[in-house]
Design a protein around this nucleic acid. Sequence first.
DNA 1: TCGGAATTGAAATGGCCATTTGAATCGCGA
DNA 2: TCGCGATTCAAATGGCCATTTCAATTCCGA
Lengths: 231, 231
Amino acid sequence: MTGRKARNKSGSDTRGQVLAAACEVFAERGFGGATIAEICEKAGANIATVNYYFHDKESLYVEAWREAFHRGLEAYPPDGGVPAGAPPAKRLRGRITALVRRVHDRANFEFRIVQKELAHPTGLLDEVLRECIRPLRQGMADVVRELLGAEAPEVQVVLCARSIGSQCMHMLMHGRPGAGGGRGARGGSPAAMDVEAEAIADHVVRFSLAGIRQVRRAQRRGNGGGTGTKR
Amino acid sequence: MTGRKARNKSGSDTRGQVLAAACEVFAERGFGGATIAEICEKAGANIATVNYYFHDKESLYVEAWREAFHRGLEAYPPDGGVPAGAPPAKRLRGRITALVRRVHDRANFEFRIVQKELAHPTGLLDEVLRECIRPLRQGMADVVRELLGAEAPEVQVVLCARSIGSQCMHMLMHGRPGAGGGRGARGGSPAAMDVEAEAIADHVVRFSLAGIRQVRRAQRRGNGGGTGTKR
DNA sequence: TCGGAATTGAAATGGCCATTTGAATCGCGA
DNA sequence: TCGCGATTCAAATGGCCATTTCAATTCCGA
């Protein structure tokens, strides 16, 4: 209805700055906890601009999530840059490292917004979330299925994929909220962060590949039985 | 200061009913989203009773968490009933099933309160949380350490324990919020819920035992190297 | 330079909610 | 039965916040 172009007049790009600020504040506080006043203050804009450019807080929320999601996706391609022809274990490693990095990057807001949304569902993201996340889940499931063997029952595929996903996402829960706003605001030194993320990714890969192989073995024996331990 | 006994006068136990209602509402909406009005309505009490018995919303919150935590702990002993002398794999199974059941039980509010608290930290539970959770984490870490071997570096123990914990907790994120208030409000039939929880627990046990064994093997070879895959 | 549309600004408006207040009511011992 | 402390009640009070409103300002083409 109103504007669609980046910088409507002059060079100010108020809309864009509000959107960026909204990503940060919604990620920090969730939909209910965020105030339009804080978003606008951070953007250096007047309160009324939200209504002017986005109609209301809810639309701004959806728009902010979309923005954060697309930014995250292009910064971290979900296959981790591993070509589709690579062996499945390599592709799994690619997906896991991409996911861990994406979750771990403090300048990436999508996961923190989703975390808040899962805790306090507003329902506003339901549709757009399903839409965006399904292909990612699918991609992970495909790799897992390949590792489990084509004859593996779907429920095993889902369980293994969930085990992997949960390990990657759980990292959100750690590390102090700490240093507040700034653009590239990560926790400690960027290098240290990256090292930590890589170590976590390595662990998840090792742990999960072994888990998947065990599930595969157990299903060959008839799934009721062994955990692989001697007693 | 005021009262400490269960049913102050008559048989009404207003304090207890408010506390129970608070558990449900805080679990459903988090600290910020919960309103005293809703809690009191659910408890069939007047708004002012919160101030009368608990001074303010914050104290009620802490008290409610404590209540939910202790209820959960006695319903599901953290070792899963496996004796301390049992082999470590069995003890791990005990801990995992206890944790999954506790998280999975819709009538158990502690984890949902904590989930909301992690998403929107109020800081009010910081102290009490550390206090209560440390022994549980410690117990899990001890079993994992035993499985990894005494010479395993602590960082590996922590990573494996986190992998396990994250898988168990992640189940929170699934299953519709669905059927609202009622006392024993679980999802579908109780039997079906239990079956699902057991299946999840079995999977996590299998998956994680294999993961731990792989980590143990890798560290024996010098930890840099293998994921256990052939290429 | 001028006019009108786009944008920004500052001050209402109205709703929701935690907390307070002071008056009723209740229950029990004397 | 009476009286007093404990408990419950309904109605303020005051703060915060999304949204609206309308006036001021800026920008651009003519």
